[in-house]
Design a protein around this nucleic acid. Structure first.
Lengths: 352, 352
DNA sequence: GTGAAAGCGCTAACAG
DNA sequence: CTGTTAGCGCTTTCAC
């Protein structure tokens, strides 16, 4: 906003020879304006290059038509794909998104939350950095829609849309077992990230279903769920004697890191026996050559569900609050890598 | 902004037993407030859970501490990595970013520009959807910093930060030639995308440098520069008789699509002879198994340069305007795939 | 050091 | 159908 430069309704009114109220009326499509007057006003606006000042308007009407988004990372394809879908739906409704990164830190998440509150966002969508979400309990948020995505915060009773992690992991294990594997390694992440936690427990349950025992030395997890830890954990697993050939990864980054490590550093003899399964299926998934089964998160469905929920609450429809939408991942069988189609196991988790 | 719910300085003033002017003073760290008064005000703010209303503030001070960003896609790692770096620098300076997607369409770009103008962004950063940028010439933008990233718009004389595309492509060609290839196919994209254009012309120049002739049937380009076109174009190239073994790709998506196609559909005999070089080097680059050389765009450097430029202009330092920062990509030799280190060819393009 | 008051650009009664 | 006017919450002279 450069000083003094911008045109206001006052100047438009003057040029059109009407009052500012009339200008405001044509701006807001109030019916009660003569076609002729409207014409004059429109011409004046065009001639002056008028642009409505949304911040003045927001101050007056007491909302901003802005949705705040907080995600742990901007450079994460999964998150941004979801956000992109939301954008496609929200934009036609006149909403603009302020997207913030929490940089995977609760502290930064708190700071960004503060910023968004001060900017009077009409609604808030957050992919939490962890299961610690006390800062969302502030009364500054009371009355404004908040929807949690991908990761649940137990203490927060708000609308939530999630992927069915347990279902996904069970299917992946089922695929591996169907191929004949009875020993399966697990490579996961921080138990404070709800998704990591659920995927791990889903793994334990699935193994139990098949009367299989997880082996402690081959259930590896550390704080991060990134490429580097995937690499390191894979190296650690393969360095141990008598390691399994089948591994399950809790997300795409771990999987990617592990695949890179194996491709670059592991002998063809052991490499050729390796079989992977993993959560996530992103655009580069076809290159993950050891992968037989993947649980593709329905990013578009998630985005649509979130947008619908936000819009619904924004219209003051609070029916069913708080809603929990659980979406199933799609199980991909990567036959090009040797995956074998198998019967999807009976679901014990909610449908859709 | 839920109606009536929020606390204003008025209420804080009342509770603290001072005037709203005083509250405003402590909010803005004006020295001329007694420690004692400040204490009382701070306590009142805490007790009431006061949050400053940035929109009211913006209206008064005539700027929003908001930077508008327009990118062609949100789910593009390259763009978002740049934005993420900017965020890290801009946030500590008190700026917030509104990130918009133009969905690769000039029309949508225009619409988002309008939104950002109406929201009074203090500065604008845009990764253009094409070389058509007439809409940025509007006088509503006069006086506010605009910086173009990655793609230049000839008609727009504003600060710009670019990757040295010609340099990158020349190096890639040099690597391939050094390995002994004299026939090199080129797979690129729409000439209206400035990067695609430059990379193509860089290819022609580089071939010329080495006294090599590009072969029309193996210089393939179509509108999109995505995975699907990469796949299709690769298929087309390989279906022609007597195709070259070396191929250069104008970006990562084309490269990824082609690699997928080759991996899945091409016989081991021809596959084993294929050697790729490509612009871009993203996190999954190690999986691109036919790639010997890649030009890694310096995403962090780009982000830093953009942020610095924005900050400089925001401080009303218009020296050197319009600046054009050209950053060199880093040439990666992927020895794990068979790449051979080679002498970087003499640069004829600006350094740094 | 602190308060009173004007006004940023816009919307929405309320009159006419 | 149109104009006048009173704020939205905040900052900022200008007095005291």
């Amino acid at each position: 906003m450069r000083d003094g430069g911008s045109i206001t309704i006052k100047e438009v009114a003057q040029l059109a020879g009407v009052s500012i109220a009339t200008v405001s009326r044509v701006l807001n499509h109030h019916a009660s304006v003569t076609a002729d007057t409207e014409q004059r006003v429109r011409e004046a606006m065009l001639e002056l290059g008028y642009n409505r000042n949304e911040v003045a308007r927001s101050l007056k009407i007491r909302h901003t038509r802005t949705i705040g988004i907080i995600a742990p990372e901007l450079s994460n394809t999964f998150f941004m794909e979801v956000v992109e879908t939301m954008d496609c739906i929200l934009t036609p409704h006149g909403y603009t998104m302020i997207i913030c990164s929490s940089n995977d830190s609760v502290q930064e998440e708190q700071r960004k939350l503060q910023v968004l509150i001060e900017r009077n966002v009409d609604a808030l969508v957050v992919i939490p950095a962890s299961d610690e979400g006390g800062h969302f309990l502030t009364k500054a948020l009371s009355g404004i829609p908040v929807v949690l995505v991908d990761r649940k915060i137990p203490a927060l009773h708000v609308d939530t849309v999630l992927t069915d992690n347990r279902y996904g992991v069970r299917q992946l294990v089922a695929g591996l077992v169907h191929e004949g594997f009875s020993r399966i390694g697990f490579i996961g992440g921080d138990m404070h990230i709800p998704t990591a936690n659920e995927r791990f427990h889903g793994f334990l349950e699935a193994m139990d279903d098949h009367k299989l025992k997880p082996e402690k030395e081959f259930v590896l997890m550390d704080g991060a769920m990134n490429q580097y830890s995937g690499r390191a954990l894979m190296e650690e697993a393969l360095s141990r004697p008598n390691h399994p050939d089948a591994f399950l990864f809790a997300n795409d980054s771990l999987h990617l890191g592990a695949t890179t490590y194996v491709t670059e550093c592991v002998s063809p003899e052991v490499r050729s026996k390796l079989v992977f399964a993993s959560f996530d299926y992103l655009h580069y998934a076809p290159l993950l050559r050891f992968c037989h089964y993947a649980a593709a998160q329905p990013m578009e469905k998630i985005g649509k569900a979130v947008a619908a929920l936000v819009l619904k609450r924004l219209e003051q429809d609070w029916s069913g609050y708080p809603e929990e939408v659980v979406l199933r991942p799609e199980i991909k069988v990567m036959s090009a890598n040797g995956g074998i189609p198998f019967m999807i196991v009976r679901a014990e988790t909610p449908v859709q």
